[in-house]
Design a protein around this nucleic acid. Structure first.
Lengths: 307, 307
DNA sequence: GCCCACCCATCAGTCCAGCTGATCGATTCA
DNA sequence: TGAATCGATCAGCTGGACTGATGGGTGGGC
């Protein structure tokens, strides 16, 4: 059996207006059409939804139950149409963001709060991208946006079809053990070449964050001795605090600086950039425009170095 | 614009399988059919739900949003079909009972509890029939069942097309002021003719409950002096307790008998009958059968005089 | 009590939506 | 560059859906 929406619509109209003739009139058909469609329900299901009483018809229990379901079907169908229309002009629909780069998670909360406050009709969701490349998820449409981190010193390949919208710059600082800083009488700005002989703590070399350290050191004229390969900046800071080595750490990772760690600025500034990646084809969608808008506002309010 | 379920089904299949060719294969159509249907969405709505990327297609944001709504529509459509099928063999669907005759309200609670316990898929509801004739509501299909009270001494007109299923008999007792009972030295069984000269308390004469009192008195050979016309049995009992008059009160109204009221049995038994009225056409529906079944069980368990 | 009005079911006929099959342009892979 | 695959489009056909006419059945009015 296979119920059609047309059949449900007619049945519902009969349920409202009472007679087939009135339903036909209301729907702009002839009674014959309605009668045939409703007869089709019984023919295909084997279940009578109408019964004649006097010269009128009346819904059976099954018919009334079917009307209740019909209401749902028709309502969802109408909702689908209005949702489609509204998406063109208003920030509505679902907006899913892949989160992975921990760098942006600090602004994720304020972003969602303000986004839903400004656009209540927007269904904002996040999704953890376990291991997967979040830009690929954006590209494939599984999510609508993701944060990306790029290092000008070791730029990543940008995926075709995506727009990368700059949010802010995150500056690297040189983290030194307090004892070392005192011994060397370091100032607020230091050439990292001065620490060429120290042991370095850096993310793994196969990570873009790791390569930027190596690149920066080579640019300063030396090859760093990366004695400890750690992906986690807070953990790196703990090692620095323990006097085990020196590290380059971005501002965003410096919210909690352990004691006995001295932070100084590299003479040659090093930064990474944080972007929002969205499909180029979806940039004119109001919901995406709202996302970029609010993200920029959150960056400005956070006092970050907006791009 | 007018989206069809077929279009939504095809769009959803494309969203699942990735390509139009695969979707067509999955649905048993040619790619041409799917392509035309999906093209129809854009033609009718003016909104592109697909975009070509390479030699494949990809859903736009609007397309993905539409798929989410499509899932709902299709799911409800399937649910409508299974609900229809299940109603034939199981006690499912909505079962609405009109409540008005307060007589049956004492068994309404246990009835609903046991009905939902035995048939969890049944959606049992009640509806107050303000002023309307509840049997008319049943006849019109606005509800599925209602309780009715009939008096063999003054039988009501039974509505055509409805089945009245007897539940139990409710016996009338004679309520006397204790002082009067003591003065007259009444026994456990008394001919009501002995109280022909007393003032009577009874429901209004235009009520069937009122007429049964007059009928019974006439049967006993006298015309009662109905000094107080009250529709409410508890209130009547209070008047009896105050020594204002005598009354005929059914058992169901005697759950709380005030002090200084003596209850005796009429020599000629008087009763009213409580029935469940359902549409004759719905008696073979499992849900209705379950209702009648459980109602009978509740009556038996309550120790009522089942019919 | 009869007749007319009304309602619904059915049937033949028409029309259009939706499918198939073929063709073509575009893209990817070897 | 050639072969394969994908999607869009077009012509053509089929079946579903609606119209209009007919007939059975019921209810209200004179």
């Amino acid at each position: 059996m296979d119920l059609s929406v047309q059949q449900l619509r007619m049945l519902r109209e009969v349920s409202i207006r009472g007679t087939i003739a009135a339903a036909a009139d209301g729907l702009g058909y002839t009674p014959s059409a309605v009668s045939q469609q409703l007869g089709g329900i019984e023919k295909s299901t084997g279940i009578a939804v109408l019964e004649r009483v006097g010269r009128n018809v009346q819904l059976t229990d099954e018919g009334r139950e079917l009307v209740r379901h019909a209401e749902m079907v028709i309502r969802h169908l109408e909702q689908a149409e209005v949702a489609l229309e509204r998406m063109q002009t208003e920030a509505t629909g679902r907006l899913e963001i892949a989160v992975m780069e921990s760098v942006a998670n600090s602004m994720l909360g304020p972003l969602i709060v303000e986004l839903t406050a400004r656009h209540p009709a927007l269904d904002v969701r996040t999704r953890e991208a376990f291991g997967e490349d979040p830009t690929l998820l954006v590209r494939n449409g599984e999510v609508d946006a993701c944060f990306t981190v790029d290092h000008p010193a070791a730029p990543m390949a940008r995926r075709e079809g995506l727009d990368y919208v700059g949010l802010f710059r995150d500056w690297f600082r040189l983290a030194l053990p307090e004892q070392l800083a005192r011994d060397r009488e370091v100032g607020p700005i230091e050439d990292i070449a001065g620490f060429a002989d120290e042991r370095w703590i850096a993310p793994p070399w196969d990570d873009r964050c790791g390569r930027v350290v190596i690149q920066s050191c080579r640019l300063a004229g030396f090859e760093p001795d990366i004695a400890h390969s750690i992906d986690d900046y807070p953990a790196s800071l703990e090692l620095v605090a323990a006097g085990i080595g020196v590290a380059l750490v971005p501002d965003l990772a410096l919210r909690y600086v352990p004691e006995s760690v001295r932070i100084v600025n590299p003479a040659v500034p090093i930064c990474r950039t944080v972007d929002l990646a969205v499909r180029a084809s979806s940039r004119d969608r109001p919901a995406i425009a709202a996302l970029l808008d609010v993200a920029a506002a959150v960056v400005a309010r956070s006092g970050l170095d907006h791009d």
